[in-house]
Design a protein around this nucleic acid. Structure first.
Lengths: 335, 335
DNA sequence: CTGAAAGCGCTTACAG
DNA sequence: CTGAAAGCGCTTACAG
């Protein structure tokens, strides 16, 4: 492969001069600069990144930490979008993305110490204070997107951008109310699963309260089959309470709900309206298509990267930024 | 960050000795080796990979080239699995994975020249002879998985591992025949889309021929809605020819078929059996669940990486390896 | 404006 | 078995 020394030889200058020319240093004559650039071009010169990174102690690469996302359809769809959007957004800034599937924190620490990345984006809940402290101590920029690190109680030490789930739960419920539904059941995650479900439920309760309605809450696993079972087992409760709408706090749950209602010949949305949460693309395949709350994941990524770069470029300014982004309602046929 | 010089200072040896110790060189005494390792451990030493890569001209990183996979549910599911499995498999060999979303070949050439990766895995069709030649000339190891590069006519210059689609089309059709279906329609891709659909169709024709049946072939777009429309528009043809089974050459198409048949109150599998191809996880969500041909993507990845590593470790041996892996039938409710 | 030198953090052939 | 030296391909402070 061609190096700056090869160019230097051909141009009859020192390799330092070549380096300056290619880096558009302002202490070089336009004439030699252009001559050198032309030669570099002809030779198809490309920097040896490893040399550059060693010298500058900067990699122009951001690590993206995700959970093990494969093997389950919902997270595959979500993380494929996330990874794609992140790569795309960082590429616009001339940064590379390195995907790290989270296994343990030691691997993350090793990754940082090995100087492969300049910063980290976490879309991962299982991060402890230990790692946060390590990064802060070393002035290593990072941000949490979408998820909050659940082992941590003090969020004043981390930047994050995530969905405003309270608002999401609120608009989902309000939408149902505005469409005339009165007895609205919400199906949320089992307790302790994740704070975001608590927030969605609080949004739900706020809308319920504002309209003097009665609240109905089921706690359940987040998956399709168990939600199907849940409805099955509680069909009498649903009938006895005249439940006429269900706010399932994930789309997958909502699909399980719809399948179960179909099984009992309950028409959606005529007898019972159903709204989901997430806007997974899957929702478009089912009949009726699913009304849902869309998580603003692209906005989260773009905003998150913006904040991260402020941190990268300005290490002194350690201001913590926490941002909630409002989700939006996607109206389809199930309500 | 701690360097080998820091360790050297504490251990009272030269940094060359530290390097030998940490690399388990055999020209070092056990005693100093252990002493040095202990110190390194205590200091939490991790190599600066950039220095190591520069020195060794080796990155222990493999590039994975994919199309732009996000924005469409089917490819999101497929590539999320693929990326995950690749990262996992390479990690076992102590290699990192770098994801490159294909835009143009110059970016790939730059990636290679910049010394960020030791080899490339292509799961991408749009590669030309130009790039192949460049890699071969530079003795840069690469392999094609799953797809064949469609702009190329001479496959003797490239390693690849892919599904045996002829066999896949054959077993799908044979399965239908063995279940008593007689008039089997296959829906394949529009001509020129990809060689794999031609292969599936040839497998179909082989089974049809062996059983003296009549062949019925529709050519269509690969997506859900247009396949739904296709069935809609041709429902008379289907009825008139007593079509009693449909081999849709992708699962997404098969789901479109089932939706359309439902619309006409045609029972699956009672009136018409339906088999898909791919085994996307989505197939499990629909009723009836989808019988399909599973692409052996995990086997392809594992085998492909195995071949790639032979090439990496043994650059002299430029033997080309082409492997077809047989897919398997997944029996569910739609046949 | 340009070159020689030193340095980034490693490895390894050479000498002892 | 160990150290001093050279080198991987860059950048940049220093001197002129």
């Amino acid at each position: 492969m061609v190096t700056i020394k090869d160019i230097a030889k051909i141009a009859g200058v020192s390799h330092a001069t070549v380096s300056r020319a290619l880096n558009d240093s302002n202490e070089i004559s336009l004439k030699t600069k252009e001559k050198i650039k032309k030669i570099a071009d002809e030779l198809g010169f490309v920097y040896n990144v490893n040399a550059k990174r060693l010298n500058q102690n900067k990699t122009n690469t951001i690590g993206l930490v995700t959970p093990k996302f494969f093997g389950e359809i919902k997270s595959e769809i979500f993380f494929a979008s996330l990874i794609g959007k992140t790569i795309e957004t960082l590429k616009l800034k001339d940064y590379k993305t390195y995907i790290e599937i989270f296994e343990n924190e030691n691997e993350i620490i090793t990754l940082i110490k090995s100087r492969q990345i300049d910063a980290l984006i976490f879309v991962e809940k299982e991060i402890s204070n230990n790692l946060i402290k390590f990064m802060n101590k070393n002035n290593f920029p990072f941000i949490f997107l979408h998820y909050l690190p659940e082992k941590i109680n003090n969020f004043n030490l981390i930047n994050y951008v995530r969905t405003d789930h309270f608002y999401g739960g609120y608009i989902a419920t309000k939408h149902l109310i505005e469409n005339g539904y009165k007895n609205i059941l919400t199906i949320t995650a089992n307790k302790g699963i994740s704070i975001e479900y608590t927030e969605r439920t609080e949004g739900y309760l706020q809308a319920i309260k504002e309209n003097n309605l009665k609240s109905f809450i089921f706690y359940n696993d987040l998956n399709f089959h168990s939600t199907f079972d849940l409805i099955n087992e509680n069909i009498d409760y649903i009938k006895n309470n005249n439940i006429d709408a269900i706010f399932a706090q994930t789309d997958i749950m909502a699909l399980g709900v719809i399948k179960a209602l179909k099984y009992f010949n309950i028409k959606v949305p005529k007898n019972i309206g159903v709204i989901g949460y997430d806007n997974i693309e899957l929702g478009e395949f089912f009949a009726p298509t699913l009304t849902t709350v869309e998580q603003p994941i692209n906005k989260i990524i773009i905003k998150g990267i913006e904040i991260l770069f402020k941190n990268i470029n300005n290490k002194t300014n350690n201001k913590i930024t926490n941002i909630l982004i409002k989700p939006t309602l996607i109206l389809r046929d199930s309500t």
